[in-house]
Nucleic acid binder design. Structure first.
Length: 508
RNA sequence: GGCCCGUUCGUCUAGGGGUUAGGACGUUAGAUUUUCAUUCUAGAAACAGGGGUUCGAUUCCCCUACGGGCUACCA
């Protein structure tokens, strides 16, 4: 599978918008394979379609990779010796290869305008530009030689198309699905060079993969049908011996219905599809990302890796280092996987639980800052994190679970307390305030035993006095062990909240 | 339509000629938590169908069905 050739793989997105989770997974598998085999992981920007260029998309892609911890060795920002790493900057080099193909009789000039092609498609239901139809179109195969020459001399807009041979079978061994074959008769004469002199994806990938000495290609299954075109090109360009090995990854599908997962599904079903928030510069529309929704990068990467790959054991939690160590192409699945957001959240939950406090702290500091809470002492924050972290699915849940540690409740769930309120309870709480005031040291166990003793002395039932206490400190029916909360809040703050809560109850 | 790829619990998957078909998410029920969540325990839940090959197929082969992808001067 991996011969003596140096492993060089590339992730080659086009900068047209946010980075889809399927894209991140492709990048991840490339990265894992490269690392596993001491190879290079390269980022190449495929921006040959200038009409689809979106400002900021390239920087965004790099930031996503950086967030995931899978930065490339070579990229536009960090060029190696195989640059440039943007196809638009390699523009000048492509035409020569296309011309060479024409000279060798493996490609030809075509002068049909987009309008003419459209008309043809409307006329003939399943029109394809190929060996059956090219003689009736306007190209250097059908037109007289001198007409072709004068068209070219007059700079008539034209494209260069691949001349796909007749009656051949192209087959290759895909590292994931084994032997795959195609009949050339059904492959169309794909455009290699557009009228704007830019190459199409087909020409550009092959030329660049060769120039960059790419050894293995991991890409989505949607590319499988164009594999024969690429193989033909490797052959016609005379590079067949250096052709990389192919691996077509299964697709990530919509959780409900059917089809490839798209950004629209995220809106519709309420989960992110992009790695990070993406704002479309043209429309201003914001599309949510996993990062901003509260995912740990470790969890995101872990979840993605297990979507289509497993190590054969029951293990599901893997760090990036472990993935590198255990990754193997043989264990990549060959069928598409429906994305399951519930499972994604479970991965995040597990990673929050197993992450170190130092790693977690900055995330929660950021969550607090969003709610105008600043300058929290690390010691206090750490206590709170340890109290609530196993209750969190998303980092952003921290606010719902722990806001009361940083500000007193604004509202009280009085409905769960009022109906059973009695004067005895009022005096219990005025009494407990006094007891608390004189109590030291202020720790959870101590407070608990003092509180329970007071309950016994009052003759009231324990169950009647636990909930009101919680409502006073927290505001509602949630949160960790109540005496841990009181201990963390401190004596002064706890007493203050009891007083305030009590008056809120009495005010009704 | 044509071509290509695929098909094990609802979902992600392990397995592989003879298994009680395993795990995880979700779900259900209990326990713990004098709140809620977590956690723990238990349960329900799958080999798409039909033909072969075979002593024996979920596993190998073929067909069908179904699903997906591609079919642009997009990647």
């Amino acid at each position: 599978m991996v011969d003596d050739k140096k492993v060089r793989v590339r992730f080659a997105p086009s900068p047209t918008g946010g980075l889809h989770l399927g894209g991140v997974r492709t990048a991840l598998f490339n990265y894992l394979f490269a690392k596993k085999h001491n190879g290079d992981f390269i980022l190449r920007i495929e921006d040959t379609d200038q009409t689809r260029f979106v400002a900021g998309a390239e920087e965004y892609i790099i930031e996503c990779l950086s967030w995931c911890g899978i930065l490339p060795q070579e990229s536009p920002q960090n060029p190696g010796e195989f640059g440039p790493y943007r196809q638009s900057e390699r523009k000048a080099s492509y035409r020569a290869y296309a011309e060479r193909l024409v000279e060798d009789g493996n490609a030809y000039y075509a002068f049909d305008t987009p309008e003419e092609l459209n008309a043809e498609r409307n006329k003939t239901p399943n029109f394809t530009y190929g060996h059956k139809t090219r003689s009736s179109m306007r190209n250097s195969l059908s037109l007289p030689e001198d007409e072709v020459r004068s068209l070219l001399e007059n700079n008539t807009p034209h494209v260069i198309r691949l001349k796909v041979p007749e009656d051949e079978t192209i087959s290759f061994s895909d590292m994931i699905r084994g032997q795959v074959s195609f009949e050339t008769n059904i492959v169309d004469d794909k455009i290699l060079l557009k009228a704007d002199n830019m190459p199409t994806y087909h020409l550009a990938v092959v030329v660049d993969d060769h120039k960059m000495q790419i050894s293995h290609i991991f890409r989505g299954e949607e590319w499988l049908p164009s594999a024969p075109i690429h193989i033909l090109l490797w052959e016609y360009l005379g590079w067949k011996k250096e052709m990389p090995q192919w691996a077509h990854l299964p697709l990530i599908l919509k959780p409900d219905g059917h089809g490839k997962l798209s950004k629209r599904d995220g809106d519709r079903l309420g989960f992110p599809v992009f790695a990070m928030n993406w704002t479309d510069p043209a429309s201003g529309e914001l599309i949510k990302g996993f990062r901003e929704m509260g995912f740990l990068p470790e969890a995101f990467v872990n979840m993605l890796a297990l979507l289509g790959w497993n190590d054969g054991s029951d293990q599901e939690l893997f760090s990036l280092e472990e993935l590198v160590e255990k990754f193997s192409i043989e264990r990549i699945n060959n069928s598409g996987a429906k994305f399951d957001f519930e499972k994604a959240k479970w991965f995040n939950h597990e990673w929050i639980k197993k992450s170190d406090i130092e790693e977690l702290r900055p995330y929660f500091t950021a969550v607090l800052a969003e709610h105008q809470i600043f300058q929290v002492e690390n010691h206090y924050l750490d206590i709170v994190i340890n109290l609530v972290k196993e209750r969190l699915m998303l980092l952003t849940d921290f606010w719902d679970q722990a806001s009361f540690f940083f500000k007193e409740p604004e509202t009280y769930d009085l409905a769960s307390v009022l109906p059973k309120w009695t004067v005895e309870k009022t005096s219990f709480f005025t009494d407990i305030i006094e007891k608390f005031e004189g109590y030291e040291p202020w720790n959870s166990e101590g407070i608990e035993s003092l509180y329970k003793l007071a309950i016994q002395a009052s003759g009231l039932k324990m169950g009647e006095l636990m909930l009101p206490f919680r409502i006073m400190l927290v505001g509602g029916k949630f949160g960790p062990h109540i005496f841990d909360i009181a201990a963390t809040l401190g004596k002064e703050e706890s007493i203050k909240r009891i007083k305030k809560g009590l008056s809120a109850i009495l005010a009704q």
